[in-house]
Design a protein around this nucleic acid. Structure first.
Lengths: 226, 226
DNA sequence: CCGAACCTGTCATTGACTGTCAAGTGAGAC
DNA sequence: GTCTCACTTGACAGTCAATGACAGGTTCGG
């Protein structure tokens, strides 16, 4: 019952996983995801088709599964941000990644993922999962700082979703403009277009009454009784 | 070559599509999406499996395809909003839907979609498509108002993505809290947590020169070197 | 040496799709 | 009226992803 020990087997397994992932990604980029049957991937690494599925739950997971690491890093990053930091800034830093890959390679990966419907769907779904964890992290952080969100307050979820939405928008814009500038710049620009309603202009203090008021005037969208 | 005429055949086709959709949705809600093979749907409406796929591209599309109508309505809504209205308010009104269904039924649909991985993925992907169109609509509106976004400005995409992110977050929160209150309230609360960086404090008037200027100063956070 | 845990390939099966083909049906041409 | 033409349908076969079952073969600790 070794919970998640770093045994030799575990390391071997990760190595094989990585090998499959790399080979598959190369094939997907070269021939396209849909045009590359699993058999081709299996053949490329000299395994049976069955074994590939022992390392990855689905075909999409070969590509998207790599995000599990990124997700872990995000949660660590969030936990490491200073407690007093504005939420939007902390969220921005979730997307700081030092990717040692050559710039062109990163763009190629982005292109396959964003332009293959099946992969895009799996990607967005994975991001949704990650958001769940991040929103929970925001809740914990606020609680630790002494001003927890009410249980049914949608704020952490909404802010997280908005941040991730900006991130994906940035990826699209970045790719559409040729991926020449760093992705981080695109993320900066996207996230700079918005700010949380409360702490935006506040002197980084506990929220004031006037702001809570300024928050209200959402013009009650009339459920259209017809 | 009748482009998209409202011929008898077209109407019949839509009727059949609707019949399949309704029957399938009932089955999906009752037995679960994954536990309901297409054969069961086909049998329920007295057709061959093959014919079901002549009306829907994929199994997920039977559920998600209904959003095409919603997408059209969104674009109409956006076009109908007053040109001077703050963007965030206009975006909020995209999610106003008068759904004549009983409240419990709507919640059931939401539950299947959000809790079935395959459906959630397809749903998010469809929303992504819609966002593309909405962002374009924002661009057109701004251009019509005389202050178009620069070609590579990520603002419309980012704002749209943030709004849709809030919407999905609202759906989750709404469902998690028992779907007792109107969904519109949840959307209000989610979207009230954020505001665009520029027009937030503006006196809700027709745009001034200073606004076009205030649109630029993206504060460019540090790209985190190492 | 030995069993437990793990990994592997092979085979068979399910389920989502897709291509094809022969047959049916309706609306308009004649 | 009836004869097409366009469109639809069911039946059949085939591809691909994914899963379960079985039969070896390996490694590791005792």
């Amino acid at each position: 019952m070794t919970p998640s020990q770093d045994t030799l087997r575990a390391r071997t397994r990760r190595a094989v996983q990585r090998e499959i992932g790399d080979a598959a990604l190369a094939l997907f980029i070269e021939r396209g995801f849909d045009a590359t049957p699993i058999d081709a991937v299996a053949a490329a690494v000299g395994m049976s088709t069955r074994s590939v599925f022992r390392y990855f739950a689905t075909k999409e997971d070969i590509v998207i599964g790599k995000l599990d690491l990124a997700a872990d890093r995000m949660l660590e990053t969030l936990a490491a941000r200073p407690p007093g930091e504005p939420v939007w800034v902390s969220l921005r830093h979730l997307f700081d990644v030092d990717d040692p890959r050559p710039q062109g390679s990163t763009a190629a990966i982005h292109r396959v993922v964003l332009e293959t419907p099946a992969l895009l769907a799996a990607y967005l779904q994975k991001l949704q999962e990650i958001q769940e964890a991040v929103a929970l992290g925001l809740r914990e952080r606020a609680a630790a700082a002494g001003r927890p969100y009410p249980a049914d307050d949608p704020t952490p979820r909404a802010l997280t979703a908005a941040a991730f939405g900006c991130f994906v928008a940035a990826q699209h814009s970045w790719l559409a403009s040729g991926a020449s500038t760093p992705l981080a710049d695109a993320v900066d620009r996207a996230m700079a277009t918005l700010a949380p309603a409360t702490e935006a202009q506040a002197p980084a203090q506990t929220q004031t009454q006037t702001q809570a008021q300024a928050q209200a005037p959402a013009p009650a969208p009339a459920p259209a009784p017809s």
